[in-house]
Design a protein around this nucleic acid. Structure first.
Lengths: 195, 195
DNA sequence: TCAAATCGCATACGATATGTATGTCAATGG
DNA sequence: CCATTGACATACATATCGTATGCGATTTGA
């Protein structure tokens, strides 16, 4: 009976590798992360890695998917906390900007992710963040709050602006001061979608 | 007199290397481009490359700077062709989206550039595109056409949205159909900056 | 004009990292 | 209880970057 002891151990090792990969990619970047060090830190060898994820890109994809899911669920919660759907969308956007200030998110999801895995809209994870934004926009369009434009394009523009802005904020000399100004400009820009 | 034959040859070789790097980075990506092949294609060896550009990143920086300059001058011309400054800004944005459809621009400037060199706003080239947009926005703010928000942030958001949108358009299944819808959504979004 | 010094570039070398092929041992299941 | 599977470790082959060294053409100074 016992639900396969081997499978349980495998899942556990996968978790270890994803965690180690997340740390290594965040600290050294994708190119600079050594698979030997990474796997050793997880108490394993490269054998486990190649068996579980195929290659280095495979591990990155798994790590990106994990972080992306975390971000989407957090953003969704924030958006849902607002009674007014439009305010919810703005809050969601601001939340993305703030989450993207995390160096881990920047390095892995915003910089190395697209460079190595290609455009987020084609990721197997479907880019949960993008998907959530698009859904919010579609609902707002249905209720006549926002202009009728292509929802997918609008979501992509909005999310692109937000995430890109976060990179800018983080790279600025005084992020604390730049953040509110950027969020304000973001709100102004987003209002262009209103009907 | 003869203005140094050595210097002339050196400039010529730099041009060859930049051209070869541009082609190699575009085709294989930064990580996948071999310096041996690249320099051989230029009729040189890695010795010339390391002497002129320091390291692989140095060559990428030079190539990015070159492409960025090209883009900025083209966009500026397009913006200046419009009598109405606001229409000029929109046209500039649309031009960026269209230029960013070029696979070379995508891979080198939008994907590998930020991943390897860091945020564009910190590039030595100052990211000419960004700078031009910011200037246009400042002038429109001075003449009361657009809202008074942080011009640098607004420029970054607008440019981020445009360039990011281009990645999305290019990755879409039917770019020809996606492009006009995206440009339309871009115009709507940008109108949020109007006073 | 000639000789010495410069310097741009080629060559040779070492280090390191990825991906694959092979081996091993515990868990499974008939 | 034994044969088989398969998850993981080990060993190997290959490729690439960056540096250290060497060469030769061009420049410079007298």
């Amino acid at each position: 009976m016992t639900v396969n002891k081997r499978h349980a151990a495998m899942e556990e090792n996968r978790e270890k590798l994803i965690a180690a990969g997340r740390a290594a990619f965040a600290e050294h970047g994708y190119a600079g992360a050594s698979m030997d060090e990474l796997t050793a830190a997880a108490g394993l060898t490269r054998g486990a890695l190649y068996h579980n994820f195929g290659d280095k890109k495979g591990l990155l994809a798994a790590v990106v998917h994990r972080i992306d899911s975390d971000m989407a669920s957090r953003a969704k919660a924030i958006g849902a906390a607002h009674a007014d759907p439009w305010a919810g969308l703005l809050a969601e956007g601001a939340a993305y900007i703030r989450m993207a200030l995390d160096p881990e998110v920047q390095r892995i999801v915003l910089l190395d992710g697209p460079a190595i895995l290609g455009d987020p809209s084609k990721w197997p994870s479907q880019d949960s963040c993008l998907h959530a934004t698009q859904q919010a926009i579609e609902e707002l369009m249905a209720s006549g709050v926002v202009k009728r434009v292509d929802a997918e394009a609008a979501a992509r523009l909005l999310s692109g602006a937000a995430l890109n802005a976060a990179l800018y904020v983080a790279a600025s000399d005084d992020p604390e001061a730049t953040l509110p100004k950027t969020v304000e400009a973001f709100s102004a820009l987003a209002s262009g979608l209103l009907a």
